[in-house]
């Protein structure tokens, strides 16, 4: 893969740094080979977090959501989460077309909400984004992806879950997986996310400690595309006036289910 240009680039770099131009230097010392004492302490703290601690984190999350116009609602269970989502679908009007439709991830938590039935009562179609069959062949694969994207574009609300939520900055964290396209949280005018209380972490430090050193998350790591989403899309490019909905969703609603573990 390395070309002569690339070698020259690195030779110039090493020369500028005062090293031998042709010798690749060892990288090991720059990267931690295991968790630090601080990391371990943090992981331990996360593991032992009590229900009351989690409730405090949730309150922090709700507060952090306010200034960025992220609506954080705590709901007790799946049924309450489902009615909350359905209420948003009923209340809001589509931005681009006339008819209402909703796109949602194929995701264990979203599946358990029972949205399909509830939305059918409102006569609002639900489009689930199924994983693409990697063995279907290139053309099939592309046709299916285009069909799925068209559905997402036609939907005015996108429903997703998330991997984590950072309380201090009100940030949803999503790692990329088949069946969970990031456009569902991006292209529709309104993004609705559902998480469980145990997915709330304090801050980025905790998040990275988990992703780097907790065996439950480490194998997947950050995936090939990890998203942080903190509230609705915004801009202040016209005379520094804050406007929501520049390109991404104009509204984000986050429902946190308190009596359920993920």
């Amino acid at each position: 893969m390395r070309t002569a240009d690339e070698d020259r680039f690195f030779r110039r770099l090493r020369t500028a740094l005062g090293h031998a131009p042709d010798v690749s230097r060892d990288a090991k010392h720059l990267f931690a080979q295991g968790p630090s004492a601080e990391d371990l302490q943090m992981l331990d703290r996360i593991d032992r977090r009590s229900k009351a601690d989690r409730q405090t984190l949730l309150e922090r999350l709700i507060e952090a959501g306010k200034p960025i116009n992220l609506r954080v609602i705590s709901v007790p269970d799946l049924a309450a989460a489902c009615s909350a989502v359905v209420a948003v679908v009923g209340e809001k009007e589509p931005e681009w077309g006339e008819s209402k439709s909703v796109a949602a991830w194929r995701h264990p938590l979203v599946d358990r909400l029972g949205l399909e039935e509830a939305l059918a009562r409102l006569q609002v179609p639900l489009r689930i984004t199924e994983p693409i069959d990697p063995n279907a062949g290139r053309e099939c694969d592309q046709a299916e992806r285009e069909r799925q994207l068209a559905g997402i574009i036609a939907s005015f609300i996108g429903v997703t879950a998330a991997d984590f939520c950072m309380a201090d900055t009100a940030t949803l964290v999503m790692r990329n997986r088949p069946g969970q396209p990031r456009s569902v949280a991006l292209v529709p005018s309104i993004h609705v996310a559902v998480i469980t209380l145990d997915q709330v972490v304090a801050d980025m430090k905790e998040l990275f400690a988990l992703l780097r050193w907790d065996e439950r998350y480490r194998p997947e790591g950050l995936s090939n595309y990890m998203s942080f989403i903190s509230g609705p899309s915004k801009t202040a490019d016209i005379e520094a006036t804050m406007v929501h909905g520049a390109h991404g969703p104009r509204e984000v609603h986050l429902f946190v289910i308190t009596e359920l573990t993920g």
Binding site: T129, P131, I132, D133, P134, R145, Q148, L149, N176, R177, P178, G179, P181, R182, S183, N224, Y225
Partner: peptide
């Protein structure tokens, strides 16, 4: 880039 099975990217 997008991985096999991903819908977008």
């Amino acid at each position: 880039p997008r991985r096999p099975g991903d819908s977008d990217g």
